[in-house]
Design a binder for these strands. Structure first.
Length: 819
RNA sequence: GCGAGAGUGGUGAAAUUGGUAGACACGCCAGAUUUAGGAUCUGGUGCCUUCGGGUGUAAGGGUUCAAGUCCCUUCUCUCGCACCA
């Protein structure tokens, strides 16, 4: 596809990229004379420098923030706009396993390629602040933060069933495992994973669950992302209730969100793995129960959680006593009860819980209705007046002794108080959120700075950080649950940092890739500081991040982890705010031309380098913004890229005309001021597609003129500058101005010139447009009405009819209602 | 099933507070220019039409002088979660 370009974009773009780099045009420092409200921290999600290089999705978000930053600078803001690399990670290590190439070598090669590609798009980053998470000067502080977590009891070791991925040779966090039709799979690489009990480092993120939940309310984030985080945290409030075993040998504690349905609890169910199962099972049921437990153990998680299948379960032979009505209730086991949630046991209320209903129907257990649905709610009933399905809504209590008639919410509170008084239960809160499994059995990550000295664990002293990664012979995971580091004996064996003189062994697990990205936005503030992760004055100057732009795929993982670390840093006084990112925008994915996700196997991948060489960076930038709204998912369209390119080309050819001094004609001035207003408004709201459309309208107008007036041309260059910065710099210079256009003040519009002298007023009869009249702007409503009624054409439609009323909207329309 | 969001020309999409639906761009059509052009410029382009007009924003209903926009019902699609008691 040969481009039809004539304007020398390659020369222009190289020229100005070199200029910006040489002049450090976009370097920013902490100037105290700039008031807080004129400072902006605009952040991109930094990339993982993959071997494949940049794809067209990267420039989308980066262009959006770049346009916004350039716009802010021209409006007098000090703008912090940095870029870096999330450079620890599995692909480089897997490549090392295959080829023996050190991950450092691959990583740095990829970083150089990424940096070059990013620079070729003309983004206005302050490159002096670049960071890479694999750099020891960086991960020193990642390790430092880990030690702070450890000191505060937020990092602990535990043996627990964790997701283990054979192919990756490492454990994974819950968040990194996806449920697929083929069973649980790793989020990265789509490999099968399974649960294995292993000793792991775990971060106590659950301690922050409530704060992570509550503080979402104050954030200007997309509702969907907040909903996903809320959902992931999964807070539910209810009560823990103890049911005594009939034989008096103890009790079973359950968690319920509906303590108001306690009177309807007709049986209980334990998870097959529940500790009590073995003890309470009667001799008669023993064989059946053992077989079920064994079968449940062998089942994959997918089989266990398959909603479509019938409920299975086995009676243990034991009975418990319902504490409120002393009813004797059988105790069952079933794999629909998860041992890891709540207490691993439930009271079953089949009348008011769908799952319990299914189970009760399956096994012929009794169903007692204890909630009367509100009259206005339709509920299916059987012929004899009983419920035909579980009613899970709220209503009024029935069959509940003295509590009858209470509204659900009131009853919940009342019964919880009663249970507490009786010593039978208490208010309880549960979360779906689990603690964060933090260790990985891999090489290419931050070493965890701890030494095992016999039974005790001793942190590496802060002043000895960074604890550097040693070189290894083989990058292969040992497969025994240990990382390749375990084989580096001379690194592992070390003196105990406790000063005892005895020898210890280093922790050989490394941190997950998320660690480095949890705090990188802080390092940009003070990237060369070797005394602290960032100076407090710098943090106070810039933080929090005003705008954070990135893909929605990080909705839960990165954004939840980073918020957690930030809160810890807040608690230890390192940062000044509870939340790191005040405003978040997810750029929509750019799909292939076929409307499907770009992927190598589909062959629909567009390489930004090809677009840059064929059309130039300015065209790529503007085209990606012109495709549609930033947040929307949108298919690539090679055809319409020419529309944007043609626009820039026209701007170039316009500049070849002689610039004329003096006052431009009024009709041009009016379009100009409308354009300034629209582009200003839309750019500030990140509505770039409509701003570009307005720039096109203006160019089309200028093109029809014989002469090009400087006063009409220069403001256009300024409006263009954030969008097509290379071309704008060149045009600015050619217009006889010194560089750089990037620091010239944004043009202002005059309100009176944004309004036309004449407007078209629509005349409707009964809401249908029947005529249009040209009238001076702000014609009084009475005159509007008279003019409209006086129209011959309107008379045709109103003849012989009764005039009911006339509605006038100034400068817009007249609607004549007749009968 | 639950949660979030979206349905507008042949295509990507526009449309302050309800007030001319389809800006801008692609594509298509016509004209100009040109040795020629898939370059450039100008104009046209929702659909139907007996050229009066009719009709049109997923479907149906409602509120209103007036609905893409507000309300109700239904359908479709995308994303996320999914036996979380």
């Amino acid at each position: 596809m040969p481009p039809m370009s004539k304007y020398p974009f390659t020369d222009i773009e190289q020229k100005w990229q070199a200029y910006w780099e040489r002049e450090k045009t976009f370097r920013v420092t902490e100037d105290p004379s700039i008031p807080k409200e004129k400072r902006a921290y605009v952040l991109d999600m930094f990339p993982y420098p993959s071997a494949a290089g940049l794809h067209v999705g990267h420039p989308e978000g980066y262009t959006a923030t770049d346009i916004y930053c350039r716009y802010l600078r021209m409006n007098g803001y000090a703008v912090l706009h940095p870029m870096g690399f999330d450079s620890f990670g599995l692909p480089a290590e897997n490549y090392a396993i295959q080829t023996g190439t050190h991950p450092l070598e691959t990583t740095e090669r990829n970083i150089n390629r990424f940096r070059e590609q990013i620079k070729s798009l003309g983004f206005s980053y302050d490159w002096d602040r670049e960071v890479s998470t694999h750099d020891p000067d960086y991960y020193r502080w990642t390790q430092w933060i880990f030690l702070k977590l450890y000191e505060r009891g937020l990092a602990y070791v535990a043996e627990m069933p964790v997701w283990y991925c054979e192919a990756l040779g490492t454990v994974l966090a819950n968040e990194e495992v996806l449920t697929t039709p083929d069973g649980p799979r790793s989020e990265r690489g789509n490999h099968p994973v399974e649960r294995r009990p292993l000793r792991q480092w775990i971060l106590r993120i659950t301690e922050y669950a409530d704060r992570l939940l509550e503080d979402l309310d104050g954030l200007d984030w997309p509702e969907s992302i907040k909903a996903m985080q809320r959902n992931w945290i999964g807070r539910s409030e209810g009560a823990n209730v103890r049911f005594a075993l009939e034989d008096g040998s103890g009790d079973i504690e359950v968690f319920t969100t509906r303590p108001d349905t306690l009177f309807g609890a007709t049986y209980m169910v334990l998870a097959p793995e529940h500790a009590l199962v073995d003890r309470i099972t009667t001799a008669a049921q023993r064989a059946e129960v053992d077989a079920y437990v064994e079968q449940a153990r062998l089942k994959s998680d997918l089989e266990r959680t398959d909603l479509a299948k019938d409920k299975t379960g086995v009676f243990t032979g034991a009975y418990a006593i319902n504490p409120v009505n002393k009813a004797r209730v059988p105790v069952w086991i079933s794999d629909y009860i998860l041992v890891s949630y709540g207490t691993g046991a439930i009271m079953a209320v089949p009348a008011h819980d769908t799952r319990d209903w299914e189970f009760a129907v399956q096994f012929g257990l009794s169903i007692v209705q204890v909630v009367e649905p509100p009259a206005e709610v339709y509920v299916a009933h059987t012929e004899d007046g009983g419920l035909a399905e579980a009613f899970t809504g709220e209503g009024h209590a029935m069959n509940s002794g003295d509590f009858d008639g209470l509204q659900t919410a009131v009853f919940k509170q009342r019964i919880t108080e009663w249970l507490t008084e009786q010593g039978l239960g208490r208010k309880a809160v549960n979360y779906k959120l689990r603690d964060w499994i933090f260790s990985r059995q891999r090489y290419w990550g931050e070493p965890i700075p701890l030494v095992h000295c016999g039974e005790t664990i001793v942190p590496v002293p802060e002043e000895q950080l960074p604890l550097r990664l040693p070189d290894v012979q083989s990058y292969k995971p040992s497969g025994t649950g240990e990382s390749p580091l375990a084989k580096v004996e001379e690194w592992v064996v070390t003196g105990c940092p406790d000063g005892s003189g005895s020898m210890g062994r280093r922790e050989t697990n490394t941190m997950p890739q998320w660690a480095g990205s949890c705090w990188y936005y802080l390092r940009y503030l003070d990237p060369r500081n070797d005394r602290e992760l960032a100076g407090r004055d710098k943090i106070d100057y810039w933080m929090p991040v005003d705008l954070y732009v990135g893909g929605a795929e990080h909705a839960v993982l990165h954004l939840l982890y980073a918020r957690f670390w930030h809160k810890v840093l807040y608690d230890i006084g390192v940062v000044n705010t509870e939340e790191p990112f005040m405003r978040l925008i997810n750029q929509g994915m750019i799909l292939g031309e076929d409307g499907l996700r770009m992927s190598k196997s589909r062959g629909n991948v567009v390489n930004p380098d090809d677009v840059v060489s064929a059309y130039g960076a300015d065209t790529l930038r503007m085209f990606e913004m012109f495709l549609g709204p930033l947040e929307a998912e949108k298919p690539w369209s090679t055809g319409s890229i020419s529309g944007v390119h043609r626009f820039l080309d026209r701007a170039w050819r316009l500049a070849e005309r002689e610039l004329v001094e003096g006052e431009p004609p009024e009709h041009i001035l009016r379009v100009l001021h409308k354009t300034i207003k629209k582009v200003d408004h839309d750019t500030g709201r990140l509505e770039f597609n409509t701003a570009i459309a307005q720039l096109m309208i203006y160019i089309n107008e200028l093109y029809k003129e014989e002469t090009l007036f400087r006063a009409a041309w220069e403001p256009f260059i300024l409006l263009l500058a954030p969008y097509a910065p290379h071309l704008a710099e060149e045009l600015w210079e050619r217009a006889g101005n010194p560089p750089s256009v990037s620091m010239v003040a944004w043009p202002q519009w005059e309100e009176s010139l944004t309004r036309d002298e004449e407007v078209t007023v629509v005349v409707q009869v009964n809401g249908k447009v029947r005529a249009r009249i040209e009238l001076p702007t702000d014609t009084p409503e009475a005159e509007l009405r008279d003019r409209a009624l006086g129209l011959e054409r309107i008379a045709e439609f109103t003849a012989g009819k009764e005039l009911v009323k006339v509605i006038t909207v100034p400068n817009k329309l007249v609607n004549i209602v007749v009968r």
